[in-house]
Design a protein around this nucleic acid. Sequence first.
RNA 1: GCGCCCUUAGCUCAGCCCGGAUAGAGCGACUGACUACGGAUCAGUAGGUCGGGGGUUCAAAUCCUCCAGGGCGCACCA
Length: 552
Amino acid sequence: MRREEIRTGLIRAYAAAVADAMLPDAPLPSFSVDPPRDEAHGDFACNLAMLASARMGLPPRTVAKCLVQYLSPEAIVDLDRLEVAGPGFLNCFMRPGWLAPVVDEVLEAGSAYGRSEHGAGRRILVEFVSANPTGPLNVVNCRAAAFGDALVRCLKAVGYAAEAEYYVNDAGGQFRRLGQSLEARLRERRGEPAQIPDGGYPGEYLAELAAVYAQERGYQILDEPLEVREEHLGRFAVERILENQKRVLLQFGVHYEHFYRESVIRAERGPERVIDALRAAGRTMERDGALWLLSTAGGDNDDRVLQKSNGEFTYRVPDIAYHAGKFDRGYDRLIDVYGQDHHGEVPAVVLALEWLGYPVDRLEVLLTQMIRLIQGGREVKISKRGGTFISMEEFLTDVGVDAARFFFLMRTIDNHMDFDLDLARRPSQENPVYYVQYAHARICSILRGQDPSLSVEAPDCRLLAHPAEVALCRALGTFPDEVLAAAEGRAPHRLTLCARQVAERFHAFYVQCRVLGEAAEVARARLGLCRATQIVLQNCLALLGVSAPERM
RNA sequence: GCGCCCUUAGCUCAGCCCGGAUAGAGCGACUGACUACGGAUCAGUAGGUCGGGGGUUCAAAUCCUCCAGGGCGCACCA
């Protein structure tokens, strides 16, 4: 809105000053027009003069003063005055009431407020979680789940055709050991001596699954040949476990467009094709009976095995094939969300893709840092073997979906995170999600109490001149920018800050300005502001996947 | 040992990509505020060598470099 007018006005002033030779001819730098932190610095502050001055060899303030002279103020609606301040900022002060149209804008757009067509329908595939289907989802998967899902929501909101994908490792060595583990449990159940294989899955859930299997299908499978048993039982286990994972993800509000299976990639002979192509490209070498990817040539720490001496592919081969397939499926951009513990694998996969001729600059790998669970003031060690296992489902039941999502989304993913389980299990006001939800519930309460005879049509929002009202309008006005920044910056955590700011300003407005019982025109304007705030909170929370309750 | 990531207030964290004005929140602490729309609220105070040293710059939490702490990887497992 106004910001773009200011930007355009400044670009014109810049060109005009250069044309008149009042400023040296230098390319226009990319500059910012943003609301300054300190409101005494105006409604917008611009750093153009400071950035240009370096290229022009003039003091920043001189450039700024010149730009002011060439700027046509009438091109910027509601502009009050411009000031050159500090080291050379251009501060724009708007006339009182300039923010009022925001309320009308929000009310008119409704649930579409904050959405845009910025992405122009470009296709983005976001892969996240992709935990092995060998057991229940772990609490540590929550961070990536919340992040990936919120990111997809943000991307969709700003006009991208974004899709969420979960890669299912239902083939290979781990799959086989899963089948063997289930077989051992099944034999145990029939009273035979049996042992979970090395590297297998000793978790109790497989014993339960064995009971389910026995009840549904009996024990005949145990008389079949080894290969048939492994495949059949592995398949059974994967499908049941995956079903369970899907259910928990859905409970967490996480939606996927695709569950893409490694078995499909294997069936299409993707790994063989990858190996043939890499071999043909001269990027491989036989050594010790195995086939290696010469990834050190591309800067990786080590060469990596592609095909083991026993003829099996390492997991990274189908992984490369999977990513090649993602490119082939026609996406404009691929985003992978991986845990920090997998980062070592990234360079080899990216290199292989590059050598296969894929545009790897369109692939973004985002790494989520580890979370630490704190309980009773000490860290709870989470390891797959032996350690305390906390399933995602158990965690969500403890903490609640809203608190869990909001909490994980409050942090950027590239920071370690301490999650205090005691605190999380005891929802209290310390958890900011309640603060935001309370603001929403409060608004709903006001709207329930409004005089039904009061017309809701076209309130005069210019009446909203109280500082608390202005501050709230200002926060509502930045929401579309925040959504865009959250999507483009892969930073949905910004929206938790945004939600908190809107809630904070609403609470302040609430104690300073009465809504119900005021003179009709004022009441109408304030009710409009309340409804606009309600809409922004709803839209914001929806992008985070957090509910906006009407009562608490 | 090698590689990647992290270090900002008592605690948990934004800000760093793309350098700008006095480094911001929340929680905790302390002081205040209800005869009216939900006190799960509000107003205010205290609290910082931005891990440390160099460098680049008119300007560094932000860029470069060295160092120190911590995390995670470094399988013919995934």
